[in-house]
Write a protein that binds this DNA or RNA. Sequence first.
DNA 1: TCTGGGGTCCTAGGACCC
DNA 2: TCTGGGGTCCTAGGACCC
Length: 418
Amino acid sequence: MKEIFALVDCNNFYASCERVFSPKLEGRPVVVLSNNDGCVVARSNEAKALGIGMGVPAFEVEDVMRKNGVEVFSSNYALYADMSSRVMETLLTLAPDIEIYSIDEAFLNLAGFNCSLTDYGRKIRRIVKQWTGMPVTVGIGRTKTLAKIANRVAKKSARVNGVLDLTDYSCLDTVLTGTPVEKVWTVGIKTALKLKSAGIKTALALRDADISWVRQKFGVVGIRTVYELRGISCYLLEQNPPVKKSITVSRMFGRPVESIEELKEAIASYASRAGEKLREHSLAAGVMTVYVTTSRFIKNRYFNSHTVEFAVATSDTIELIRNACRCIDRLYRKGCAFKKCGIILNGLVSENQIQKGLFDNIYRLKSQRLMQAVDAINIRLNSPLQWAAEGLGQSWKVRFKRRSNRYTTCWDELPEVA
DNA sequence: TCTGGGGTCCTAGGACCC
DNA sequence: TCTGGGGTCCTAGGACCC
């Protein structure tokens, strides 16, 4: 049986999450900012119409936002993650095989559905909106790449009412002609430039490009994209989330950090979070990299990193913090105004496949029990336990000046009905 | 003054082995 | 004088995704 993919994509996801619990935002321009209220990461259609671009620094659009009364929010990850799982659970009732592709997108396998796929797409839209409040768009195609293109067109064209089915679609060539090559999935900024300089400007031109030339210039990724545009599926539905290969925790600071003590507090708190993530996935890390950096936007940027290998893979927060702080001792440079630091864990292994060490002198069982106890307590507490190394004041912490309430995950912040 | 965070895959090139 | 060839593994960096 031939594959049929539907891509269900939440419209302006973060902005729509804010609207669900604040209906007065309906019809108004809404913008959500990244960590530290730095960049624009989501915009309602009204905000897009004002010319506010994706990813632009907030300070660059401050004037236009103020003049037009744009509603501005800091990122509220607790809310967005919870809304995402509500949407995904709803989709699971509408199609048995789904791949959760990102926080706001899922691929559905619609092969074998004996009905009008357009009608089914409309049903998906209606039910997701009714059950979760989230507006979504549905694009349908014979490959993931074509489903992506269908979704993009459905978002832009009011005529199709949020659903476009490109399987057996008579105007497929017209759609591909109207799709700039840089909008094709897997074609990024560099590849698009190379393609355009070779005269390939649309998805249609890429579909009809010479395959050996594509292989030579763009490798197997390029080949797959061309085949996908031709309706030959190269990317299958992946229902089981792949095993993690790395875990990163990094944040910009709320203000420049110059003292080694504060740098250590920050890295300790990221190491603590990294340990939690390891244990959430029942993993242990064999390798840890710590990096520090000053601003990307100054001339004499200082960036440095240091990697340590653990003799025995670990998920023990105390061990992570101790080693991360040692890394900071090596990386710190006096007089630098640090803007960010981070920790990357690699060499991940399942916690029941840890290779024991002959000369290991750490009492692992004890530390394991301690971590279990800490995790269990933190699940129940609103403000989690902290390690002393994380510091008390934490004035370096990221800013979230305009965060909305965590309506769905925090008892103190439930929506109120007047 | 102010510029996010967390991932994956692929490839080329070096190290190393027989 | 003359210095092979083929294979694997690992890593860093590039490119891309949301």
